[in-house]
Design a protein around this nucleic acid. Structure first.
Lengths: 349, 349
DNA sequence: CTGAAAGCGCTAACAA
DNA sequence: TTGTTAGCGCTTTCAG
């Protein structure tokens, strides 16, 4: 009795399988597989017939099957705190640049600023659906009692190093950048400073604030004399800081917002109230987003090389995926772009 | 002789398998599978032992295996013309909103404005790595002699309908929106118009231009008398249009740019040259991106409900994935936001 | 150079 | 209620 043939007929819409191709070409499935993976192991005539059969059937190897077999997914998980934030998109672009070249795809984990969303993506990592992870938020995602870092996958972080995690990172030096901001403003004669902060606990906020304070100390000013407004990097907190600024008699002459969004919202709000920038108050941002050069006045800011950050991180991850040597971390330089929103301090009133 | 046990010991770092759990719990793999998929089919004590074993081993079902078996991927491919373009991110957010709720993940296909990148993602679709596709660019990706639409997957398009493709779409009515723009400007007394275009052949450009011309005709103006500048939705083309504008003696008093990016760049450039907005020239954009409200003056524009567009499209796709009835298409309303960049036409010089 | 066969990890009939 | 078994589609020894 013949071995029953596989039930080919019920194949529905999904494309042809390797069996279809093999049958059509009159070879075994192994030969089809070899033709695709290492053609040099297959005789010329066989190869030709296989290629023709592939052409005729429109065969594309099934990824799930290949992944199962190869125990890898050719996918990288990119964890983004909030995909609605423009700051991240150029980084994604840099990541994609590198990934595509190596045949990897990109699955986006958008946390939407809600930590409870992490669990789902931790599972994804443990389920073997991705081969590596890129972290953008400064947190190692966790959920269901385990951490992403325990999934045994290579991980790299972008824009921030996670203390104690021992993960490779690619970022700019926040402290150094803040220092440059203070030095610039001090050289313009500013002595009273305001600082619009990032979210409490955020590592970038921590670094930038530390650099801000160190910068003040370096020029002989007391860090505690500066004004500190809470913030979360978003537009709204710039507006709130501006409202408080406007309500004060003893206003700072220079305001350093640790994101462009906050700086721009601050500028817009105080300008609308009749305060002139930079004549009455100088404003500095952080990030160097595209639009910082399209507001009035143009915004003095620290430019984060976002695309390069993404590229470098992806490269580090790809090296790790290739079994290469582990990189420890990388600082990219972030220039201060001096533009229209900073000027000489006004005369003492 | 005993049946040889599978070689468990070489399991490397990847997590435990269903066999590990089954062995530990003293049940078959089927029972483990059932415990996860339909617990009510498993006796309480067995269930408890399985759960304990899962806990102990840290087991997570392998996705590749499950996908292979189930013939689905629980992933949606989102094709983006250029992920660096801010316009798309809020749409992605809307998509993600809906997808997450249904257990689907999101793979990003970033074309980076290069059509040759399409082929890779066409393959992905044919390889069964995704269950559905969301198209943002107004093109059906093709490559290696086949089109994405032939992969047998549900597809929906966002922001634009592809003529003749018969795909469900979610978009705003470009013609109607352009009409509203012209009506608004005409009511302000404007008679000489400029139009900064989108890329030639782009369907949104086509619709918006048609609406623009129809709007002019509706108020008794000749469409051919308007000035048309080429553009591609990006900042640079706004700058180029502005340069030409500045070089003219007979300048239009109202300029309609079919993207906020171009409108903002146009405003910045003419303002820097001493032209006042809106006193000398009124400017209208399209899209309603966040920053259009943070430039000086604030930009009058058509607001595309981007998040809603993403959500609606994802919902349509999910319905199709669930075998639901096919939706034909959906128009979302796009209000004209009248802000600071439009005002009464200047007196005839 | 080629084919047979095992098996990646999981699920769903089918039996018991 | 549970276990046995047959694959999902692919790659890769191992023989020939």
């Amino acid at each position: 009795m013949l071995k029953p043939t596989r039930r080919r007929e019920s194949r529905s819409h999904r494309g042809a399988t390797i069996h279809d191709v093999a049958a059509r070409a009159g070879v075994s499935t192994a030969t089809v597989s070899r033709t695709l993976a290492s053609p040099d192991l297959v005789s010329l005539p066989a190869r030709a017939r296989v290629m023709k059969a592939i052409e005729a059937t429109g065969y594309t190897p099934n990824v799930a099957a290949r992944n199962l077999r190869a125990r890898k997914a050719m996918m990288v998980l990119v964890v983004v705190p909030n995909i609605g934030n423009h700051f991240f998109t150029e980084i994604l672009r840099g990541i994609d640049d590198e990934l595509v070249g190596s045949g990897y795809g990109m699955i986006i984990a958008n946390l939407d600023n809600r930590p409870e969303r992490e669990a789902r993506y931790v599972d994804l990592a443990f389920a073997g659906q991705v081969d590596g992870v890129l972290l953008l938020g400064g947190r190692v995602p966790e959920g269901n009692g385990r951490r992403m870092s325990d999934a045994g996958l290579p991980i790299a972080t972008i824009c921030v190093a996670i203390p104690g995690a021992g993960l490779p990172f690619v970022m700019v030096d926040d402290i150094e950048a803040s220092n440059a901001v203070v030095a610039h403003l001090h050289a313009l004669g500013h002595r009273r400073f305001g600082y619009i902060a990032g979210p409490p606990g955020n590592m970038n906020e921590t670094g930038r604030r530390r650099g801000f304070k160190a910068g003040l100390a370096a020029v002989g000013l007391r860090a505690r004399d500066a004004l500190y407004w809470p913030g979360d990097f978003m537009l709204d907190s710039g507006v709130r800081a501006a409202r408080d600024f406007l309500s004060r008699k003893d206003r700072p002459t220079a305001v350093y917002a640790v994101s462009d969004h906050m700086a721009i919202a601050f500028m817009k709000t105080v300008t609308a109230a009749g305060v002139r920038v930079p004549e009455d108050v100088s404003v500095v941002g952080f990030d160097g987003i595209e639009f910082s050069d399209f507001v009035t006045p143009t915004l003095t800011t620290i430019r984060q090389p976002r695309r390069e950050l993404g590229q470098a991180a992806a490269r580090i991850l790809l090296e790790a995926l290739g079994g290469g040597k582990p990189t420890r971390g990388l600082h990219l330089s972030a220039p201060l772009l001096v533009r229209g929103s900073t000027g000489p301090a006004p005369k003492r009133s």
